[in-house]
Write a protein that binds this DNA or RNA. Sequence first.
RNA 1: CGGGGUGUAGCGCAGUGGCUAGCGCGCUUCGUUCGGGACGAAGAGGUCGGAGGUUCGAAUCCUCUCACCCCGACCA
Length: 572
Amino acid sequence: MRMTKLVSKTQRTDPPEAETASHRLLLRAGLIYQVAAGVYAYLPLAWRSLRKIENIIRQEMDAAAGQELMLPALQPAELWEQTGRRAVMGEVLFSLEDRRGRPMVLAPTHEEVITNIVRANVQSYRDLPLILYQIQTKFRDEPRPRAGLVRVREFDMKDAYSFNADEISLDESYQAMAQAYRNIYRRCGLSVLMAEADSGAIGGKDSHEFILPTPSGEDTVITCPACGYTANAEKAVGIYPAAADQANTPAEVEQPLAEISTPGVKTIAELAEFLNIPPYRTLKAVFYAADGEPIFVTLRGDLEVNEVKLKNALGCHDLRLATDAEIQEAGLVAGSASPIGITAIKQVADPSITQGCNFAVGANRPDFHFQNANYPRDFQVDLLTDIALAQPGHGCPQCNEPLEATRGVEVGHIFKLGTFYSETLGALYLDQEGRQQPLVMGCYGIGIGRLLAAVIEQNHDEKGITFPTSIAPYQAHLIGLNLADATVAAAADNLYQELSQQGVETLYDDRPDQAAGVKLNDADLLGLPLRLVVSPRNLRNNVVEVKGRSETDARLVAIEDVAARVRQALSD
RNA sequence: CGGGGUGUAGCGCAGUGGCUAGCGCGCUUCGUUCGGGACGAAGAGGUCGGAGGUUCGAAUCCUCUCACCCCGACCA
């Protein structure tokens, strides 16, 4: 490709709106063009790279016995009502009407359609297991698109679905997909973490996310350097430090409940300081609204609520902190709230309230707290279950060594779905004994554009992108310096022809009037793996300069050997 | 949806009621340059996000509205 014919141009300055490296470089190198919030055009360079990513994914999916097909993005809303997901998805679902006024949606994912297809085509265990996949455009009206291609509203996704006779078979498909995913990331030049993940309201047992560690990421991953435990913070379990200075047999050491005056004390930090006790000797109260119903949550004062765990425990769609008005209406006192004496509100508590005794807690009237609160002596709860957020420093659930936290971008997610869709939509098969059984399903997603963003996030330096060869838009960046010199122009043109004929994907900077600095900087910005420089200086010695993007020094190669050397370098 | 911010040339920005709206980069033409973002000369390019209002006069003041960015709740 000649750069004089390339539609996209590089920009000299960083786009001010781009906070993350991939967003900044994608815009600046002319790979993407923004059309609307969270909607981007892929310009030719990006599109070449994305197609290479897709092909790697296809190869790995096919190797794992996947069959590629293509499903429609435009679907009747009715299909989504059968599974109840029209309501679950809510405003994320792009909705429209056709000319007859029928409600339609633009699909954000494809479980409904694929399950119906399988229902119509699979009746026997002999057809199983089955893995189907597609690479197709998804539509999600995200509340907040961000960071260029990381979080958008229209994006291409590889989504795969497995159909198995039983859980054991599902495990095999799941493991095969997990391995395919590892292969895909490795081949794209990415190093990712595989983290235990929350499977959501409809999920089955297992779910894993593939996370690219980066400070600009949206997710927090909890890791254990000692044993390798890795989990999304939404899912992670931490062993919080037991209250070492407290006896483990509360019944014998419980002190009488006592109300004390605590003027101006509202937060846990203030309470702990006022009483000169550590935060873990207090109890924290938080109020939520779950699908509109008020929820009173209690956990130990040194811990935070994990809202995903809470949401799962309650089985609700919508969970948010209660408003001040709702708190007042419930007769609660913010800053001094107490689970003691609350009967009209649903109460949820974390088991941490049993780790210790004689806690300080609000008295549900302003400027007063209780001392020596003990569960279950002083209050009862409707639900006692893990709702605490694992934090760095907590003990690993596998080995009790201190956990660490890392930020990251989710570049893939695999789920064991179980039988929710097959039962709801009637996708059944006959087993060997002739009994009807629901198909056991899994689903597996990778966002293609986000993967490109992740690759750039992990492969760049201060000058620009450093594309891995496997997904670089072109393999070689040929620069002709001082093309006003007819000899140089001829040599560069010839080399371009030769490389092209030998199958080396070459971007040829044939711009006649650009200064050397502009061309060299653009080459660094675009980040193709190999840079070839033809110049008067080199040509006097009949050589061409060859340099890898990440190398500091160039090699001089005789011009007649360049094509062979380039092919060799690319195959390494 | 809550909080913060921005809309003026392709890009980045200046312009607090007064003449024909300006600067840098980029772009066009000519000339000179030619290995890390060259120089000179001459040019092209604008519904000042939109609508309404105030005014002799609005990019500038008022009202409404739209879009986009950043921080939080969501996801591949």
